Simulated assay, not measured.
Amino acid sequence: MDRPVAERVRHELKFRLAEVVRAERITPHMARITFTDPSFAEFPSLSYDDHVKIFISPEGGDPALPVLGPNGVEWPAGAPRPEGRDYTPRSFDKQKRELVIDFVLHEGGLAAEWAAHAKLGDRVGIGGPRGSFVVRNDLDFYVLIGDETALPAIGRRIEELPARTKVEALVEVAEAGERQTFTTKAYLSITWVDRSKGASLINAAKEMALPPGRGYIFIAGEGSTSTALREHFVDQGHDPDLIKAAGYWRRGEADFDDGHAH
């Protein structure tokens, strides 16, 4: 019996208070924040689209953190409950105990507003990841499709794929200044879809010709777009078990919590 192409690995749910050690603006609308905490020595992040929950205090300062009790997640009595948002670990260095998270900067988002002004010493709560969806690296090709919100997952996947792996990426950004560069040993072909020029991800994806062979398609970004593109590739005859489509946000909701982590 063939091994499954993808496997879900469960992790023990833990909550940490992590401190900012670097805050950078890698493009005009993307902030890269590096966090550290001694407990990161036991932090699990096995997959490029893992999700953690970032907890930000609504009143500033350190957020309260929950604990796992007999009835599940329990919050300290009397403490203001922080807001939580799901984010993808862009990279993780276990030796340095450093977790990197990229934040798309936009108006109306609590976490985006926090990231735009983050400074050394600021602290947030981090919960998870609860699990990792691990895709084997023994297919003929990989296709990665998404908008800015998917770039952390797409960038991490590009950089982690082994040498001579064929990967095609299609990424929608607001304008040319939001493009990123990646260091990879894989055979990468990347196409940038520029919204400022009237281009759209869904149209560009539907014009794609998939490489020959057996490949895995990862789609993430706006919910209805991800759903439509999954249906498109299934209609084209691609094995639905070799497609993952995730909705990271919904059109019209500035601070949509995708619920991937917990």
Rank of each mutant, 00 (worst) to 15 (best):
V21D: 09
A150E: 02
S196H: 05
E107M: 12
E83K: 04
A153W: 04
T184G: 05
G252K: 00
A246I: 13
H11C: 06
Y216T: 03
G60M: 01
H117A: 14
A31M: 06
S200Y: 10
H238F: 11
I126P: 06
L229N: 13
I158G: 01
E19S: 12
F35T: 07
S57K: 01
G198M: 12
L68Q: 01
N203K: 03
T184K: 14
L68G: 00
P38G: 05
D257L: 07
H238Y: 09
P38D: 02
R123N: 06
E168M: 14
A115K: 08
G109A: 09
E222A: 11
P152R: 02
V52Q: 10
L105I: 15
E231F: 03
R179S: 11
S224D: 10
E159S: 13
E160P: 01
K119Y: 05
A18G: 04
S91K: 02
E160H: 04
D140G: 09
E7A: 13
V21S: 07
P38A: 04
R3V: 11
R32C: 10
A77C: 03
P76W: 09
P212M: 12
V104R: 00
S132D: 07
S200R: 15
R25I: 05
T88N: 01
L110W: 15
G127Y: 12
G121F: 10
L13K: 06
D37F: 00
L151N: 00
A31G: 02
P129H: 06
F40P: 04
G223H: 04
V167W: 02
E175A: 15
H51P: 01
L99H: 07
E7G: 11
F35C: 04
S47A: 15
K185M: 12
R136G: 08
S200F: 07
L13D: 12
A6K: 13
G252D: 08
Y248K: 01
E222K: 08
T27G: 09
G78Q: 08
E59Y: 14
P211I: 10
H11N: 08
S224V: 07
E83R: 10
I219A: 05
R136T: 09
D235L: 04
S226Y: 13
H29A: 07
R90I: 07
L229D: 11
A176G: 13
